[in-house]
Write a protein that binds this DNA or RNA. Structure first.
Lengths: 342, 342
DNA sequence: AAAATTAGTGTGTACGTACACACTTTTCAC
DNA sequence: GTGAAAAGTGTGTACGTACACACTAATTTT
């Protein structure tokens, strides 16, 4: 009774042939005004929706997607992202999808362009990557645009000319960190923002987070003193110690996934402080559980990766359209809800 | 080149006909040992996966799903859940799905069974509902089992004999609340657990959360004093006031979505306290933004609803199997990450 | 006015799977 | 050793869409 409307039904209502309906649907002309109107009327009346199954069965093209992400061997942060991609590949293995994954070096901007070129030469239908570096991403996007390859990114910042992006609002995540700290500490506390290893890309992220962090306090009457410090992994011990002493820092906001380094140094120096960081790396988790880190903000790299790849898959396979930009929620993690995310 | 393997390919490799391969695939006998072995070998060798498109195109059955959820008009908490369901219906409207939604009264247990019976009489392929009431849910599940209708639930607690469940670990969410409070307050604080309107079902939820809450403190050396109080919406003013005074309560943990009532009373009484509650109801949000409520734990009713319905849809349409029980993360919300969830 | 072009229309087949049906070969009873 | 039943196998068609192709009718060209 509730049977789906088929092209044939439209044809019979409009008293034309299937072929004519098909021509109307695909707007390839050769249809008389009279027929056109009748078909359109029937389409509207019956609220026709083409059957995606039949459609993609007929279009038995093997859609290809290339994925270019940072090498998890270089930075453990990217491991979940790789896992997310692998899981989507598995999920869609029964479908006509050909997904190729390659890696670039998150510490060598030129590898993004270089590896990207190799993938582009395969002429995929869509290209998904992490726009970790500003200029290099633009170069890649331009090439993709010129070759008419659909582009998609996740993580980092949404670029102007990309077709799809899944990410997080970094400015806002800074505000979330600020709110957490301000809830916990006295109003006149001293707060340190730590940028770890800023040299390797990502500088924009960290700045966005810092801006967000500071903006929170600017919007309130809380008189916190906020100091910013850039640290280098290799020789941070004395630097961090003197920074903490000089300004009598009560709380640290670490703008990337390396909060564990700060927590570690504080432990070595036998000093206490409130620490907020990013991302569920094993070493961060250890400190979260032992109480040296109070909160971690989860950027859900795995979900970002799988979501964006899934979007592409469903777009190519079923023509499912999703919003151009999707911002995932900023998730606050403490030791108790941690395991929900592992 | 990377073309998908078809039944025909298997048939030609195994040197049998398509029909024979089909019989092997669907295990309906009438196949000689020799043919069976050759087909199985070919299936394994080529790692054959049937094309879900073609499959569901052929099985052009209209799958029917009945959904029974609490009436959002009776309790605003259920509004997002309804929205989630509507969004999934829209998402799959091009597919052969017939989804019927009905509502029961969250304050009248018998309506669950009653409305449930009406839906069962439609003989759907699957039945999704919120197991808000213990006994009534069991009755419903038994009927579904007897009629061989696939059952699924979301929210509340996973029942034993249900086929699928999407929910949250309530015990753990109590621990999350406890951890938040213990992070903020001095070790010897006085904490009040508030059960609002316990009379109307949901008692099990609240108890689970309380247990979790208390279990956190039992696992630490923190010497907090925890008191439990059951309140009735209609006449809570004096009760809450005297409770707070008697035990000198510093923080309240409200075990359901009615934290706004506690916040409201505190405001009226001009008293301060740390308040943690559940769910992003408009009135809770107001107090979260004005700082009268510090944190809300998000139970993601919308996501729970859409996820579980989606699972059923994809199971029926594509035969996609998902784990029997899925626990969504326990999300901590403050005023800054709030908007990510709206 | 016949031929050639163009506009408009309908038919048939393919996509990969599922299953009914027809067909061939084997098995077993009498 | 015949007949019938059973076991095993292959063919054909349907699902709904897309598109090539064949075809008719209207229009233009020669």
């Amino acid at each position: 009774m509730n049977k789906k409307i088929r092209i044939r039904d439209i044809a019979s209502i409009a008293e034309v042939s299937i072929g004519t309906v098909d021509r109307v649907l695909h707007q390839r002309g050769k249809v008389s005004d009279k027929a056109l109107q009748r078909v359109n009327a029937a389409l509207k009346e019956l609220n026709y929706k083409p059957n995606p199954m039949a459609r993609s069965l007929k279009n038995n093209k093997v859609h290809s997607i290339c994925v270019l992400v940072p090498d998890p061997n270089k930075d453990l942060y990217w491991l979940p992202c790789q896992q997310g991609i692998v899981s989507v590949i598995k999920e869609y293995e029964a479908f006509d999808l050909d997904i190729t994954v390659a890696y670039f070096d998150p510490e060598a901007p030129d590898t993004l362009v270089h590896e990207g070129q190799v993938l582009i030469d395969r002429f995929p239908d869509a290209f998904l990557f992490v726009p970790l570096f500003e200029q290099e991403s633009d170069i890649l996007l331009k090439k993709l645009f010129n070759r008419n390859i659909r582009s998609a990114t996740f993580n980092s910042l949404p670029k102007k000319h990309v077709n799809h992006h899944v990410g997080q609002d970094l400015h806002r995540s800074g505000r979330v960190g600020a709110k957490l700290i301000s809830s916990f500490l006295a109003a006149d506390s001293n707060i340190g923002i730590i940028h770890m290893d800023e040299a390797f890309g990502n500088a924009i992220h960290m700045q966005q987070k810092e801006k967000g962090f500071r903006s929170y306090f600017e919007g309130t009457e809380i008189k916190a003193n906020i100091y910013t410090k850039t640290l280098d992994s290799d020789a941070m011990g004395d630097d961090l110690s003197s920074f903490k002493e000089t300004y009598d820092i009560d709380a640290f906001f670490v703008t990337n996934s390396k909060a564990y380094k700060v927590a570690h140094m504080l432990e070595v120096m036998d000093k206490n402080a409130f620490v907020i960081g990013y991302d569920l790396l094993p070493r961060n988790i250890d400190y979260l559980e032992s109480g040296k880190i109070q909160f971690l903000i989860h950027q859900a790299p795995r979900l970002q990766a799988s979501r964006s790849l899934k979007h592409l898959a469903e777009l190519l396979l079923f023509g499912k359209h999703t919003p151009t930009k999707e911002f995932l929620p900023i998730e606050i993690i403490n030791s108790e809800n941690l395991m929900c995310y592992l």
